[in-house]
């Protein structure tokens, strides 16, 4: 950590002017994002605006073409950077849950702590059971993912990520595959995480939820941040035409 400003030192994650293209399709075109401890940032915008790609870049699932990503005082976007340790400190939850179908719920949750953190099986199991109980999944430990409802599966996915005790959680449209009732039970979990002080970046289509939990809302369009600010500013008094149009469309639905 040399020559970094006070603001940078406070940031858990610092994304600096990153670019990312898939072939000739530019998905991210100069995006910056600083995430402070305990801060909740929501990413809103249409499908294809770059929300998911930004999240995938932050924990190294995608390499970037230009810019820098700093996590915990390290430039993790440097080509050749070994990302395994980084990823274990950043939890990520996906739209399609991506649970391991051949493992029980308990094994899904204990796999990474046991294999990556080398936690003893008994301890990992005990911690997993506590987590599952907290997320309303007590008694589901020995079930297999395909036998659970979508909302239950998504909560297992959240428990699986939390089991690694991450400093930051990334949520990639985690309720998009769920009906309103199941969406509610997953969002409740996110609210609780916020209360606990977890730093989160949440890509979401749930505007009311974004308004309620976010410290800051970023509107992405065409791979750039068009507008950002406190939820009240963005939702009640958007300055940019594109933001106004986007919010207008989502309200009409």
């Amino acid at each position: 950590m040399t020559a970094s400003s006070a603001a940078d030192e406070l940031a858990l994650v610092s994304v600096r002017n990153i670019h990312k293209a898939f072939g000739s399709l530019a998905v991210l075109r100069g995006i910056s994002l600083d995430l402070a401890a305990h801060e909740v940032v929501s990413l809103i915008g249409s499908s294809g605006s770059g929300k998911s790609t930004l999240l995938r870049c932050i924990n190294g699932l995608e390499s970037i073409d230009a810019g820098e990503i700093w996590v915990g005082g390290e430039d993790v976007s440097e080509p050749g950077y070994k990302g395994d340790a980084l990823r274990s400190s950043i939890g990520m939850v996906f739209q399609q849950y991506n649970l391991f179908p051949h493992m029980s719920v308990l094994d899904n949750v204990t796999l990474a702590p046991r294999k990556v953190r080398k936690v003893a099986k008994a301890e990992a199991t005990e911690r997993a059971n506590r987590l599952l109980a907290r997320l309303g999944l007590a008694g589901k430990a020995n079930e297999y993912p395909d036998r659970l409802s979508g909302g239950q599966q998504q909560r297992v996915a959240i428990a699986r990520a939390l089991a690694m005790e991450p400093q930051v959680m990334l949520f990639d449209e985690v309720t998009s595959a769920l009906d309103p009732e199941l969406t509610g039970e997953v969002l409740d979990v996110l609210r609780e995480l916020r209360t606990d002080g977890m730093a989160m970046v949440v890509a979401t289509h749930e505007m009311n939820f974004a308004r309620e939990v976010s410290d800051r809302v970023m509107f992405l369009d065409g791979g750039v941040v068009v507008e950002q600010g406190p939820p009240a500013d963005i939702f009640d008094a958007p300055q940019q035409l594109r933001t106004q149009q986007f919010l207008e469309r989502t309200r009409r639905q």
């Binding site: 699932l61 395994d84 990823r87 950043i90 294999k115 690694m164």
Partner: peptide
Amino acid sequence: AQQAAARTLGLSNTQTMRY
């Protein structure tokens, strides 16, 4: 997506393949 999920948990390439 299965590999992506495993990698985000911090599993190495080898561990992802194995487990």
